[in-house]
Design a protein around this nucleic acid. Structure first.
Lengths: 220, 220
DNA sequence: CCTGGTGTTCAGCGTGCGTTCAGCTTGAAA
DNA sequence: TTTCAAGCTGAACGCACGCTGAACACCAGG
């Protein structure tokens, strides 16, 4: 899952970035409104964390521009404590959730997970696909109840696929959502992860659609 | 489905071409107004993507000439952002849809699908024909609810037939719409695809009209 | 310093898919 | 019925795509 963090205060940014990266997200950052607007408009994020007080362009404005341009990714707004009108403005501008500063990292992570889940139309924190289950809360996958031991990137690939069931996901899309901005092409790492995943999963769960990508199909 | 892309900016052209081809379209390209006019006038496209700022002949003019000559294929115009008068001019000239640059590939693909669908008089993204259903969004076919596994070209043949139900489609027309410009005659590939499709479909869906071509008949 | 675990690269292999072809079947016309 | 053209289909082939085992690089912890 790839996330954009928009925050201008450096110390908070580094803290958040640290936590988000160790939580397994591919993270891009922006510290001003213009960069934020550009990134959110041109890249494909699974969620955005947006502070409101930004140099060069206000957070609300950035969000409005995204929405006006048809960008629909979930956006979580960071507001000052008791910033009552900010919340209202944020909701009007198309925010999906907000969190008052200061906050606990745990809560931010939980809300993020929920946002990403709901964006895919999933209600529960646990995604299922036949015998395969994905516990997004603890970043664990299990087959028929028993836990798998996946490496960080194996989990990311599987998670993205399970968030988009019955959908062909191209290798390009996968790399985009697994790595941050500086991802490289001309590499078959995704194929390797798929191969390693297939060894740990029941056969036939991840199917290859030749020339297009991979698909996980759920018998629901 | 065969598409004509008219765009003079090389980098954008290659990007678009790449995406359109992997999306399964047979693609021809033109980078100036004259070629565009000639191709659109002499070949049979299921849709055209038309940029307006072109060398040698303006996009609007090209479109007007096509329409004046009775060509009715759906045309999607690419306009500059906020090009308000361009939109109006485009509509007057007979455009079916327009998209402001910069745009997201996903949106272009969605609009294209919609155009092709509507050109055949179909309202929904899912075409049905008895027990047979075609999900144009995910490029998938199913019989009585369960998915078929079709190869890329098998799907293209079936898709074209289902977009033209109760209509006899000649082998020539099929090859034209399945392959790009450089298609070859003296080949029975279409027959082979038809044969392979018939093995995967309920019997009797694709009927042969001797000397003319194939027809898919729907009990609607 | 070493060691175990993870991500990346690469080369060789297997195979799916498009194409071709040859032989067979079907249908129409005389 | 015979004859011929049109269409069907099983088999084979070659290429390119994807798979995979193994080596290498990198980092963290001991």
């Amino acid at each position: 899952m790839r996330i954009l963090l928009v925050e201008d205060e450096p110390t908070l940014t580094t803290q958040l970035a640290e936590s988000l990266r160790t939580a397994g997200y591919a993270l891009d950052t922006a510290d001003n409104g213009l960069d934020a607007h550009f990134l959110g408009d041109s890249e494909d994020y699974d969620a955005v964390i947006l502070d409101l007080g930004l140099p060069q362009m206000d957070g609300i404005t950035v969000l409005q521009k995204w929405r006006a341009g048809g960008r629909a990714m979930p956006v979580l707004i960071l507001t000052a404590r008791g910033g009552w009108h900010e919340k209202v403005a944020g909701i009007d501008a198309g925010a999906d959730d907000y969190l008052a500063k200061p906050f606990h990292m745990e809560e931010l992570l939980a809300r993020l997970r929920a946002l990403i889940r709901r964006a895919g139309g999933h209600a529960s924190a646990e995604l299922r696909c036949g015998p395969l289950a994905l516990d997004t809360r603890h970043s664990r996958a299990s087959v028929a109840g028993l836990n798998l031991t996946l490496t960080s990137h194996e989990y990311r690939v599987l998670a993205y696929l399970m968030h988009h069931p019955d959908e062909v996901v191209s290798r390009g899309t996968l790399t985009e959502h697994i790595y941050a901005q500086d991802f490289e092409r001309d590499s078959n790492t995704v194929e390797v992860f798929i191969a390693r995943l297939r060894k740990k999963l029941p056969p036939g769960i991840i199917e290859t659609v030749r020339g297009l990508g991979y698909r996980i199909t759920c018998p629901n």
